[in-house]
Design a protein around this nucleic acid. Sequence first.
DNA 1: ATATGTGCAAACGATTTGCAACCCT
DNA 2: AGGGTTGCAAATCGTTTGCACATAT
Lengths: 150, 150
Amino acid sequence: MRLQDEAAALKGQNNVDDAETMLRTHNCKATAPRIAVLRALLRHGGALDIASLTKLAQSEVPEIHEATVYRTIGTLSDRGMVTHVHAGHGPSLVRLGGDHGLIALCRTCNRVTELPTATVERFILEAQEAIGFTLEPGHFALEGVCANCA
Amino acid sequence: MRLQDEAAALKGQNNVDDAETMLRTHNCKATAPRIAVLRALLRHGGALDIASLTKLAQSEVPEIHEATVYRTIGTLSDRGMVTHVHAGHGPSLVRLGGDHGLIALCRTCNRVTELPTATVERFILEAQEAIGFTLEPGHFALEGVCANCA
DNA sequence: ATATGTGCAAACGATTTGCAACCCT
DNA sequence: AGGGTTGCAAATCGTTTGCACATAT
């Protein structure tokens, strides 16, 4: 099962052990801070910066430190459970799941949109053919204005 | 005349006043630090981070401070003479000229490549049609592996 | 029991800002 | 003369790290 699906499957349930299970499956020690961080990501669903993620996690485990969240994201990232996206100025964003496609950041509402795989792949192919450059857009966002804000 | 051309035209000559002229044309006070920064950009041609740019400029005006270079880039940017590009982790890059197309950063050699306008425009159009998102990629780079490093 | 994870504070790199002195125009 | 510009030092923001203590297995 892909991690996105795994996450999606767990997201509906209210079982407190979801995150814990997920951690163990991926050979991570199931500590309270990690569980809280992962649960925050599961609950929220979208992309989050570390500061917001920390606040969310702290609603379950108040003494979690931001540094711990950074380290947690680091290990979750190593295990392929989350991905980070560079977003220009601001802090980078974190989301559940392994490598995904190309992300676009709305300059107005700051929301994250995933660009359609087909479109992105055609683009990558064209860039490859045109100048031999192999785009690997996994961790870099683009900027623009989303449908809602236009 | 477009700024890129303007820059290109000046770049060949060795006239010390090139940068000075360019500054005056754009209603900037022609101070020594500004001239040095602009000349460094003209000489180098490509995209530069502030630290490198400062070092280059200091070869002409040794006492220039990095903070000054940041401020100079700010004003040049306001006047449309330079553009900055966010490049993931590292510092952002600065290059001559107004808004350009989409830039790709080689993960291996760290060099900057401009993606072909036609390709990028088709991509933007497709994203627009597919999900209504209007991409404005001016200031965000993508990542990948360039033809040389592949 | 041991390796691993944690909180905290301090270091870090990139960028910005307050301020007094300075220099273009 | 006058206001924008500079250098410097200090503040800021996001992120990383060293260390003594706590915890999961």
